[in-house]
Design a protein around this nucleic acid. Structure first.
Lengths: 141, 141
DNA sequence: CCGGATCCGATTCGATACTG
DNA sequence: CAGTATCGAATCGGATCCGG
């Protein structure tokens, strides 16, 4: 094989530390927000609605450290700082964008699944004899 | 438009609650682990190395609630429980698998970026006159 | 003995206040 | 404006215990 066999399922594999950073809702939203071009700190905070300044700053620093975003600060008054995806970061746009689109496209199925699941839970609780969630006694399927 | 304009960047959009679940390292690894077919609880715990029983159980319950995995319990002794991806869950395999492959394929670039970043940080701290990370005084780039 | 529930410490999150 | 500091609140995660 050309490259060492990196495997995110192996606890000690370095690739898992990278997966841990990118498989994160804030990372996904920030990369999606930056996909149309660089944004200033405040613009990012407004675009990724609901993110706090602290978490935005922390996440951006992690992404900068991993070489996914570049931080460009101008010595002006008032301060102006822009963030943009690096070449490496742009390769992340497709997978993370796909994840965001999945969430948007399948949310109705997910909401319906949640409703069904929660209703069945309620039924169990309300029933005098709580029925087990287990299947048949003979193990069929 | 056919569907409402779901948008994960909007704080109150339900699709964000779904993104928050799937943009998670444990979810990603579990879906990747289940992509080859159903696994028992203990097999999953062994495959997704380093995950604790509690976190595995919690994450599986969330995924079951969102309709992404199906839980199949047999009344046997000792207990046997299998988890497998639903049809909906199988549509997640590609985006999450892509994320895992990104982590594995780009880990070397990420590690190198981290090294550079951390070294520059050290330099700053060690330098008598801490140089600002800011760019030029004229705002050029 | 397996699946997973409980307990509890560690980490992260987020609102507010403050600085260059 | 773009952060950092601080501090409760909420969440995560590991060790341990329990029902079948």
């Amino acid at each position: 094989m050309a490259t060492p066999a990196w495997d995110v399922l192996v606890a000690t594999c370095p690739s898992r530390t990278s997966l841990a950073k990118i498989a994160n809702k804030w990372t996904a939203m920030i990369v999606i927000a930056l996909s149309d071009g660089p944004l200033r700190f405040g613009e990012l905070r407004d675009t990724v609605q609901g993110i706090s300044g602290k978490v935005l700053a922390d996440t951006l620093r992690d992404l900068e450290r991993d070489g996914i975003v570049e931080r460009i600060a101008y010595n002006e008054m008032p301060p102006r700082v822009e963030y943009e995806l690096t070449d490496l970061g742009r390769t992340l746009h497709e997978p993370l964008g796909a994840l965001g689109r999945w969430a948007e496209q399948h949310i109705e199925q997910v909401l319906q699944a949640r409703e069904t699941f929660d209703r069945q839970l309620d039924d169990q609780v309300l029933l005098p004899a709580k029925r087990s969630r287990r299947r048949s006694q003979t193990g069929d399927r």
